[in-house]
Each structure stands twice: as structure tokens, then as C-alpha cells.
Design a protein around this nucleic acid. Structure first.
Lengths: 191, 191
DNA sequence: ATCGACGGAGAACGATCGTTCTCTGCATGC
DNA sequence: GCATGCAGAGAACGATCGTTCTCCGTCGAT
């Protein structure tokens, strides 16, 4: 097995286990077993558990961004693109492995003791809000109101993630989508 | 020191430390030092760390509920009461010890491995939504639309908590409040 | 075929943690 | 004044975890 596939297997296994049980509840041995990559190789690629976790979060950040990018690109109008983000969330919440947003969860567990984790979570949330800002700006909304609307949409999206994680239901995505529609109407983003 | 004050000191110390660093990063010795209660007494009152954590969360649940209750009771109209919840959040987010919602954080860390923690978090979030539902119903909104609006408001509140925890800013409370106002207007909850 | 470098399996190590136990002192009841 | 039981301080214990090390087999080069 070459280094690239070992790394991918490690990140896959670690991501799954961290999502399932949290970070500190997962031992390096469990990651080794789940990935089939030896401990020696693991520590060559990721010198510490913190490094592995941050790599997992960074890769997940990329996955999330491109997933949202793809979901919104499938629609034409800014309004439909914004709503597509919430449809994307609903589909995500429906996966049976879903147990909340990795960044919200990792921040809750480690944000107080790991600056690295806190920084990555912050960057992820900022990128979500920035993405909403771009979509809203594309509708012709002036910068000030666009930023405010984007912040509100980001709060909705994060609320859907937190609520869906805890309740284990897809409903929060639909509720957030409905609320987003109301906000878009009020801001006169109709197309 | 009698049992009641020992228990209170333990819950205070544990709550502060858990909020600050997460649950698993806090040793029982740290709780002992911070509370000034001996380990022996601690284990007499709370037979395990899990018991202590659940007691902390249950007490916090009460605190949160009564805080919201008090904040809303200070206003007359249903609309003002709903908005008062978000003002309450803003004040909370401004406290320098704020590091996110204890239930969202605890669920992220332990929801996957502790049924007890998951249940308490779920109950807390349900009670928040129920409270919104009562406020909205008091405005004369019919049950169906009232429940939908309450769910949307709950998503907003949870989103504000998650976002404020990660970004360390009070802004999400204001953005959520503005969004709530728009939703109330759209639902014709004007007084 | 022999040597040597490398990778895997898992034991070992040191630290930490939850929990329990021991020892000591003290206060209270006779 | 003395015995008795309780509480505190912290050592001890057993388990777990992150990390490193040892041993062994394999494979490629000469």
C-alpha cells in the first residue's frame, strides 16, 4: 500500500470514528484496526493524534465546501441557490451516520483546549457565511443588507445542524429552509 | 460543611470546568481542587463522573429554563416575549466565560457514547421549542403554523448559540433576533 | 544465496484518569 | 479522659491511552 492510500484510509477511518464517538473516546488502536494501517505508518504520516484530527477536519472542510458548491451550482437563480444549501443539509441529515456537524462537535469537545481545532471550526463557519454572502450579493442586494442577510442564513444553517444532530431528525433542515424563504422574501430576493 | 453546600460547590465547580475545557479534559482532581470538597465526599454524593455530569446538565437545564422564563415574563406581548429570548441570548453570549451551549457541546463530545447525555440534551432542546410554541400560540396563531414558526425560532436560537460559541461573538444573537422579527412579521404576530 | 533495509504486529512505556483505600486527626458522647 | 466513628488528604490501584520500541518476516539488490 502506498502512502497516499494509507493516508486516505486513515483519514476515512478517523473521520468515521470521530463522528461516531467523539475524538477523545477513539483510541489510536481503533483507528489502526479500522483503517488497516499499522501504527508505525500512522505516526509517520501524522506525528500525533492532534495532527490527525486537524487533517481530518481540514479535509472535511474541503468536502463540505465543495458539496455546498456543487449543490448550489446546480441551480440558476441566487434564491434557488440559497435554498439548495438547505436541501443539501436535509439530504445530509438523512444519512444514517449523521450525528451533527463535525466542527460544532469538535469545537464543543476541544475548542476550549485546542487552538488548532477552534481555528479550523471558525474558518469553516466563516466560509459558510461568506458563501451565503456571495449568493445574496449575486441577487443584487447591496453589501450592508447582504451581509446581514447572509449572517442570518448562516445562523439558520448552523441551527439546523445543531438541532438535527441532537434530535436525529431531518426536520430542522426543512424548518430552516422555510425560514430562509421568508427571509429572502423580506429582503426581496425573488430570483 | 453540610451536604447541600458541598453538592452546590461541586456542581458549580464542575459546571465551570466542563464549560471551560470540555468534560473529558477535566479530571476529578481538578473538580476536587476547585470545589474544596474531598474526593470521598464527592463520590458519596455522585457515585461516578457520569452521575456528576448528568446532575450538572440537569441543573443547568433548570437554570436555562428559568432564565428564559424570567426574561420573557418581563414583557407583555407574545412578540416582545419571543424577541426577549434573543436579547437574553445576547446578554449570555457577552459573558466572558461563555463558550457555547453546554448541551450542544456535551452532545458533541458524548452524545454518541452516552445515552444519558443525549437524552438530557434532547429534552433541553425540546423544552426550548415548546416554550417558543407557547409564546406563539398566545399570539393567536393556530396550532399548525404556530408549531412550524416555533420550530423555526428554535433553529434560530440554536444556530445563534452554536455560531456564537465558535466565533466568540454576540452578533449571532442580534442576527437571530432580526431574523426572528422577520419571521414574526411574516406570520402576522404583531403584538 | 546473502545481506540489508523496510514494514507490520503488537508488546512496552510512561502518563493520566476514575475510583478506592489507608492513614491520620478530630469531634462527639459517655 | 477515653473510645468511636467520621471526614479529609492524598497515596494507591487498575485501566486506558498516546506514543515508541522490539522483533520478525519479506523483498529487492548484488
Amino acid at each position: 500500500m502506498d502512502a497516499a492510500t494509507a493516508e486516505a484510509r486513515l483519514l476515512d477511518a478517523a473521520e468515521t470514528l470521530f463522528d461516531e464517538r467523539g475524538v477523545q473516546a477513539v483510541g489510536m488502536d481503533a483507528i489502526r484496526s479500522a483503517s488497516g494501517v499499522s501504527l508505525k505508518r500512522l505516526y509517520q504520516l501524522f506525528p500525533s493524534k492532534d495532527d490527525l484530527l486537524e487533517a481530518v477536519l481540514r479535509r472535511r472542510d474541503e468536502t463540505v465546501r465543495s458539496g455546498i458548491e456543487r449543490a448550489t451550482a446546480a441551480h440558476e437563480s441566487p434564491r434557488e441557490r440559497v435554498l439548495a444549501v438547505f436541501d443539501h443539509l436535509e439530504e445530509w441529515f438523512g444519512r444514517d451516520t449523521f450525528r451533527g456537524c463535525s466542527f460544532i462537535n469538535a469545537f464543543g469537545e476541544l475548542g476550549g483546549v485546542s487552538q488548532g481545532v477552534a481555528d479550523i471550526a471558525r474558518a469553516n463557519k466563516r466560509s459558510l457565511q461568506d458563501h451565503f454572502a456571495e449568493l445574496v450579493a449575486a441577487a443584487g442586494t447591496p453589501p450592508g443588507p447582504a451581509d446581514r442577510l447572509a449572517a442570518q442564513l448562516a445562523v439558520l444553517a448552523n441551527g439546523a445542524m445543531a438541532t438535527a444532530g441532537i434530535t436525529g431528525s431531518q426536520d430542522p433542515a426543512r424548518h430552516a429552509r422555510d425560514a430562509a424563504k421568508t427571509l429572502l422574501d423580506a429582503a426581496d430576493v425573488r430570483s
